[in-house]
């Protein structure tokens, strides 16, 4: 039943997760999130001033389908750190407030006091483009 293209998509997602220490699958781009939950998660990552890769799931519905197959998580956004699913918007917010996220990312929790733009963190990965 599974088409070869679907496996390529899954492989591309799995590689993106393993190749990027911090990667967020979201709706829209970091500059223009297309969903409030994605926007909240982006703002947390920016508060912590941590570099991250971002993948927009909207251009191709298979990205979300395959991602959910890999992660066992039904909703977007999904944050992965060192190849492990950390969670969606709620868990990320909860871990930010408790300081757990800062220690997981190895950043200073006080970075939140001086939010700065992170130009290095906003290069979007386009999984759908890799398959063309």
């Amino acid at each position: 039943m599974t088409e070869p293209a679907t496996n390529e998509m899954r492989d591309a997602i799995a590689s993106a997760i393993s190749d990027n220490p911090v990667i967020l699958f979201m709706k829209g781009s970091p500059e223009a999130p297309a969903c409030g939950f994605s926007a909240r998660t982006i703002s947390v990552l920016r508060q912590l001033d941590t570099p991250f890769a971002a993948v927009d799931v909207l251009p191709d519905p298979r990205i979300r389908q395959e991602l959910t197959q890999i992660s066992g998580w039904p909703t977007i956004p999904q944050l992965f750190v060192d190849g492990e699913l950390v969670g969606g918007a709620d868990i990320v917010a909860e871990m930010y407030e408790s300081g757990e996220l800062a220690s997981l990312l190895g950043v200073d929790p006080a970075a939140g006091a001086v939010p700065e733009p992170t130009p290095g963190g906003s290069a979007p990965l386009s999984i759908e483009n890799r398959l063309n």
């Binding site: 066992g72 998580w73 039904p74 909703t75 699913l85 950390v86 969606g88 868990i91 909860e94």
Partner: peptide, 9 residues
């Protein structure tokens, strides 16, 4: 937390 939320989902 992930496993807890997965149970609800």
């Amino acid at each position: 937390r992930i496993a807890q939320h997965q149970l609800v989902y």
